[in-house]
């Protein structure tokens, strides 16, 4: 099996994304305006929201891969599902870390059961179960089907969890910065840029991870 970065287009993408990411950080730190009463804390949103977007997108891909695995029975979709689950959990962890970092100075405490963060936390716990199933479930071939079905029900559950958590503690507001579309262009444009760069980064990460999983499977199967 070929080394992932022997492929020229992958190399080009890697260099491009490193460049874009450096530009993104510089842009966020230097160019974006300060929000009056939040100062530096607000800037974490340029990372927090794109991470959440990529995380949920990734879990959506886990569901799609699960459905495709059942319809086609093709091993490839299992690898896509596993790769997306791993990367999704990475970004969801970032959301759960950056959220409290923002909340500590603004709300005075790291965690107040804000509905979006709560939904994310519940989803994170479901995915810990998912990886436990992958690790402790038994025969790898059997576990693939269980993992695919878990990926499907986890994402199907997301809207239900979100609605219930939202009405559970209505006195807690969603964080105001999430309504990014109503922001002035000075904030909106760098934000959308960051969102785009994170998505491109995610695409390369997913491709790389699928490649690694394929190589690993081959190695185990050859022994």
């Amino acid at each position: 099996m070929q080394f992932f970065f022997h492929n020229k287009s992958n190399r080009v993408w890697l260099v491009l994304i490193i460049g874009l990411m450096l530009f993104n950080i510089w842009n966020i730190v230097v160019n974006t305006p300060m929000v009056p009463d939040q100062h530096w804390a607000q800037k974490i949103f340029y990372v927090h929201v794109p991470s959440a977007w990529v995380g949920f997108l990734s879990y959506f891909i886990v569901m799609v891969a699960g459905i495709m695995y059942f319809i086609k029975g093709d091993e490839h979709w299992d690898k896509v599902g596993l790769a997306a689950a791993e990367i999704g959990t990475l970004f969801i962890s970032l959301v759960l870390i950056t959220g409290p970092i923002w909340a500590t100075p603004i709300w005075g405490q790291p965690w107040i059961w804000e509905p979006r963060l709560t939904t994310t936390l519940i989803l994170f716990l479901i995915y810990i179960g998912y990886f436990m199933m992958r690790a402790f479930g038994g025969h790898a071939e059997r576990v693939k089907r269980y993992a695919a079905s878990l990926g499907i029900i986890a994402f199907v559950d997301v809207p239900i969890i979100f609605v219930s958590v939202k009405f559970w503690a209505p006195e807690i507001q969603s964080h105001p910065q999430v309504e990014m579309t109503s922001q002035p262009p000075g904030i909106l444009i760098p934000f959308l840029l960051s969102l785009g760069i994170f998505t491109v980064l995610y695409r390369l990460m997913l491709k790389y991870r699928i490649h690694v999983i394929q190589v690993n499977y081959k190695r185990v199967a050859d022994v």
Binding site: H139, A140, E141, Y217, V220, A221, V223
Partner: peptide, 12 residues
């Protein structure tokens, strides 16, 4: 009954 190319593995 016609069985063709059945492959099965346990833990690879």
């Amino acid at each position: 009954l016609s069985v063709s190319n059945i492959s099965k593995s346990f833990n690879y």
